[in-house]
């Protein structure tokens, strides 16, 4: 590949990354995070939590450290459900972070509803239990680059293609598919209201089925604009108001402070 072609390809790749919206606001997230830390140090946990939630809206806000700090501030404010939600989101971004896992386990133990944690991963895709979606996607991208690079070299030099390049591409496709599964799997949600009643239908007409308390983490079976259908480990389902819950999917709007 000529130098001119390489430069053109680099430009094509780099342009969308540089033009990504919000990259310029990265300093904003960092600054707000540091403001939040200062507020937490001064004992203003509610103010710190509000700042952390604000920082989430900026590019770079989707960071495990920010969710960790947000969870801690909410926990100290007595909002165990919202804290658990923040820790769970942080863990999705950093599955091997032991501190986040310990905090999440601790808050879950204190929850009133003793529910088995919902199983969201497919056992065959075991790597998703210790790698984040970003890490798996990065591995898939590198493997695809290596595989395509190998093919390019073989074709340019008129050498036999061999097995390494296609194998790397197959592996990359498999990892990319697993990322798709991870991103589209049924998410969980955490009850953040002190107590909420699950009903058989949305709105007050539904029959009261069961009661949940802050910190209960459940699978989401269905979702509407104003309500979510939660599923208990024993299979029972019930609608609760969306405002009483917090999705553990990073990127979803965090309940405002």
């Amino acid at each position: 590949m000529s130098r001119r072609a390489f430069a053109l390809a680099l430009l094509l790749v780099g342009a969308p990354a540089a033009a990504r919206p919000g990259v310029a606001d990265l300093g904003g997230a960092q600054g707000i995070y540091e403001e939040g830390q200062a507020a937490a140090l001064a004992g203003d946990q509610a103010g710190a939590a509000a700042l952390y939630v604000r920082a989430l809206a900026f590019a770079g806000g989707e960071h495990p450290a920010l969710y960790h700090a947000l969870g801690n501030a909410l926990y100290r404010e007595g909002e165990a459900g919202a804290a658990l939600c923040a820790y769970a989101r942080g863990q999705r971004l950093a599955p091997r972070d032991g501190d986040l896992a310990a905090n999440r386990a601790r808050v879950a133990r204190e929850a009133q509803d003793k529910l088995d944690p919902p199983e969201t991963t497919v056992s065959a895709l075991f790597w998703l239990s210790f790698l984040s979606a970003l890490e798996v996607a990065a591995a898939a991208s590198l493997l695809a680059t290596a595989g395509l690079g190998g093919l390019l070299w073989a074709r340019a030099r008129a050498r036999p293609v061999g097995l390494a390049g296609p194998s790397a591409l197959v592996l990359a496709a498999m990892l990319a598919a697993s990322v798709w599964v991870a991103e589209n799997r049924a998410g969980t949600t955490v009850v953040i209201a002190p107590e909420v009643t699950a009903r058989s239908a949305r709105g007050p007409d539904g029959v009261e089925l069961f009661r949940l308390h802050a910190g209960a983490e459940l699978l989401v079976a269905d979702a509407a604009e104003d309500a979510v259908l939660l599923q208990l480990p024993d299979g029972r389902k019930g609608w609760v108001p969306a405002a009483a819950t917090c999705s553990t999917t990073p990127g979803a709007p965090f309940p405002p402070r």
């Binding site: 969308p16 990354a17 990265l26 960092q30 920082a55 770079g60 806000g61 450290a65 590198l142």
Partner: peptide, 16 residues
Amino acid sequence: LGDRSLAGALPLLVGL
């Protein structure tokens, strides 16, 4: 802080 979301890194992941 840096963007750890998949959506943020997608251009680079696809571009590479």
